[in-house]
Design a protein around this nucleic acid. Structure first.
Length: 491
RNA sequence: CGGGGUGUGGCGCAGUUGGUAGCGCGCUAGCAUGGGGUGCUAGAGGUCGUGAGUUCGAAUCUCGCCACUCCGACCA
C-alpha cells in the first residue's frame, strides 16, 4: 500500500508542503519565515545556478560580490525605490550584546547603538550603484556587466517555502550602459536568457511581457517579466528584468564622459531570479507521487536498482550493474546505483519517484538471463524491457524525450488554461471556475486595474510582448483598448 | 495585525460522559522474503506545547501565554 501524498486537487497547499518535505527539498527553520534548504533541494538549486551562470558568462557578464549591509541613507536616495521596500526591511541598530544585569540572559547593549542603522539588503541596487560611481568615468568603462549570487532579506508578512521566504537565495545582475537603447537591449537579452532557461532547462513554458505601472519594480522605468502557470491555475512570476533608465545613475551621481567629451548619466538595468524557481519546478510538474524533474535539472538522472534474492544473486548482478553504470556515466549521464540491502526494491521504486528521478532501471536474474532490463519513466510511468546492449544510447535519447514530454505536458496545460474573454461576467466566471491565464481588454488605467483586483483578486500579470494589436473595449470600464493583457490570480 | 484550525513517542494520528495513554509508519534484534513502500515474532521509545485554575483525580473542563498552519491585510 502506497502512502499517497495528499491529492493536489483537494488541498493544493498541503500537497505542495508535503512534496517539499517528503522529497527532502527544504523545511522551515526555527527562524521566523526562513527556510533550511536540504541537500537534495540544494543539489537542484546548484544545477539551476550552474546553468544560469554559464548563460550569464556567455552573454558577457562577470560575477562580483557586494556587501550584505546597506546604510540607511543609501536606500532613500532613490525615492520610489525606498517607498517600495521600506515596509519590509530588516534593520541592524546595534553591534554588541552584553550580560543582562537583571538576569541570566543577554541583552542588546544600549551603548552600542549604531550612528547610522544598516539595512540587510532586500536587493542591491543602492550599494552597487554607489560603488559604480567609482568604477565609471568614461565611455571606455561601459558597458559594465556584473552579476552577483547572494542572499537577500525581505520581511514578508506571510511566507511559503521557496515561493516567499524572509531570506532567499538569488542572483541579481546590475549593468550600466552609455545609451538608453543599449540598456533596453540588455534588459530584453536577459529576459530572453530567463525564458530560454525556463523553457529549455526547467521545461516550463513562460509568457514574456511587460509589467503595468502598478506591478513595476520600485525604481524601474520598465519591468519585464516571465510568467508561468502552476497546476492549480495560479500564475507565478518566475523572473524579472528591469530597465532602470537613469534613475539610479542620477540618485548616485554615476556619470560618464562620452566620446565628444560631454558628461552624461549612465543607463542601468537589473535582473534576477531566485530560489522561487524551485517552487515553480515543483508546482508545475509534480504529481501525487512526488516530484517530477526535467532530466536537465535532475541531480540524479538515472537510478539503477538491482533485484535479487540473497548474496549469490547479487554477486551475479554486480558486474552487469557496474558495467551499465560506468557506461552511462561515460556518456555524461548522472547515474546512481542503489545496491544497498537496507530497503526492498519496491521501497526504492517509491523513494526515487518521490525524488523525481526521471529514469529508473531495474535489473534482476531474469533480465540477466534475457540480456535485458526494465526501464520506467517517471513522467508517465511507462514500463519497457530493453536489451542492455546499446542501453546507454537508448537512455540518452529517452532523457531527451522525457525533457520534451514534461515541457509538452506543461504547455498543454497552459494552453488549456489560457482563455480569451470579452465580457465582465465571462471574466469573473473563468477566474472563478476555470482559473488560469485570462486574456482580456483593459483600458490602460491603474484605477481600473485596482478595481478589478478588488473585485476578483486577479492582477495583470503582464502585457505579453507578442500580443497582437486588436481593437476592443475594456471588460470593466468599456473604454477602448488596443490589445489584450494577461490577467490571473497570482502567487 | 485580524479570522479559523492544530499542538499527544522520530513522523502521521486516535483518545467517548474527566479515572492516570494507544494505533499506524519508522526505529532495534531475529527468521523468512526480495520484479511496486514484504511478512511474522520480540523489543525500545511519551513530564500529552506551556503556565495557572477547577477537581479526590485533567491529554480531556476554564483562563492566559507560546508555536505552527490555513485564509485575509502585505508582497522586486
Amino acid at each position: 500500500m502506497a502512502k499517497g501524498i495528499t491529492p493536489r486537487s483537494e488541498d493544493y497547499s498541503a500537497w505542495y508542503n508535503d512534496i517539499v518535505k517528503r522529497a527532502e527539498l527544504a523545511e522551515n527553520s526555527p527562524v521566523r519565515g526562513c527556510m533550511v534548504i536540504k541537500p537534495y533541494g540544494y543539489a537542484i538549486w546548484e544545477k539551476i545556478q550552474q546553468t544560469l551562470d554559464g548563460m550569464f558568462k556567455e552573454t558577457g557578464h562577470q560575477n562580483a560580490y557586494f556587501p550584505l549591509f546597506i546604510p540607511k541613507s543609501f536606500l532613500s536616495r532613490e525615492a520610489s525605490h525606498v517607498e517600495g521596500f521600506a515596509k519590509e526591511c530588516a534593520v541592524v541598530t546595534h553591534y554588541r550584546l552584553k550580560n543582562d544585569p537583571n538576569g541570566g540572559g543577554v541583552i542588546v547593549d544600549p551603548d552600542a547603538k549604531l550612528e547610522e542603522e544598516l539595512i540587510v539588503r532586500p536587493t542591491s541596487e543602492t550599494v552597487i550603484w554607489s560603488t559604480y560611481k567609482n568604477w565609471i568615468q568614461s565611455y571606455r568603462d561601459l558597458p559594465l556587466l556584473v552579476n552577483q549570487w547572494a542572499n537577500v532579506v525581505r520581511w514578508e508578512m506571510r511566507t511559503r517555502l521557496f515561493l516567499r521566504t524572509t531570506e532567499f537565495l538569488w542572483q541579481e545582475g546590475h549593468t550600466a550602459h552609455s545609451t538608453a537603447q543599449e540598456a533596453v537591449e540588455e534588459t530584453v537579452t536577459m529576459l530572453n536568457v530567463y525564458s530560454t532557461f525556463a523553457e529549455e532547462w526547467m521545461a516550463l513554458p513562460v509568457v514574456k511581457g511587460v509589467k503595468t505601472e502598478n506591478e513595476r519594480f520600485a525604481g524601474a522605468v520598465d519591468t519585464y517579466c516571465i510568467e508561468a502557470l502552476m497546476q492549480d491555475g495560479k500564475a507565478l512570476q518566475a523572473g524579472t528584468s528591469h530597465y532602470l533608465g537613469q534613475n539610479f545613475a542620477k540618485a548616485f551621481e554615476v556619470k560618464f564622459t562620452d566620446k565628444s567629451g560631454v558628461q552624461e548619466y549612465v543607463y542601468g538595468t537589473s535582473w534576477g531570479v531566485s530560489t522561487r524557481l524551485m517552487g515553480a519546478l515543483i508546482m508545475a510538474h509534480s504529481d501525487d507521487d512526488g516530484l517530477v524533474l526535467p532530466p536537465k535539472l535532475a541531480p540524479i538522472q538515472v537510478v539503477i536498482i538491482p533485484i535479487y534474492k540473497g548474496p549469490n544473486e547479487m554477486e551475479a548482478l554486480k558486474a552487469k550493474c557496474a558495467e551499465l553504470r560506468n557506461s552511462l556515466k561515460k556518456a555524461g549521464i548522472s547515474v546512481k546505483l542503489d545496491d544497498s540491502d537496507n530497503q526492498t526494491p519496491g521501497w526504492k521504486f517509491a523513494e526515487y519517484e518521490l525524488k523525481g528521478v526521471p529514469v529508473r532501471i531495474a535489473i534482476g536474474p531474469r533480465d540477466l538471463a534475457n540480456g535485458t532490463c526494465e526501464i520506467v519513466r517517471r513522467d508517465n510511468r511507462s514500463k519497457q524491457f530493453i536489451p542492455t546492449e546499446g542501453l546507454t544510447e537508448y537512455v540518452a535519447n529517452l532523457l531527451e524525450e522525457i525533457q520534451q514530454a514534461v515541457y509538452d505536458r506543461a504547455f498543454a496545460y497552459r494552453a488549456a488554461h489560457t482563455t480569451p474573454v470579452n465580457t465582465w461576467d465571462e471574466f469573473k466566471d473563468v477566474l472563478e471556475n476555470k482559473t488560469g491565464f485570462v486574456l482580456a481588454h483593459w483600458d490602460g488605467t491603474s484605477e481600473t486595474e485596482e478595481k478589478i483586483k478588488e473585485a476578483t483578486k486577479a492582477t495583470i500579470r503582464c502585457i505579453p510582448m507578442d500580443a497582437e494589436a486588436e481593437e476592443g473595449t475594456c471588460i470593466f470600464s468599456g473604454k477602448p483598448s488596443s490589445r489584450r493583457v494577461m490577467f490571473a490570480k497570482a502567487y
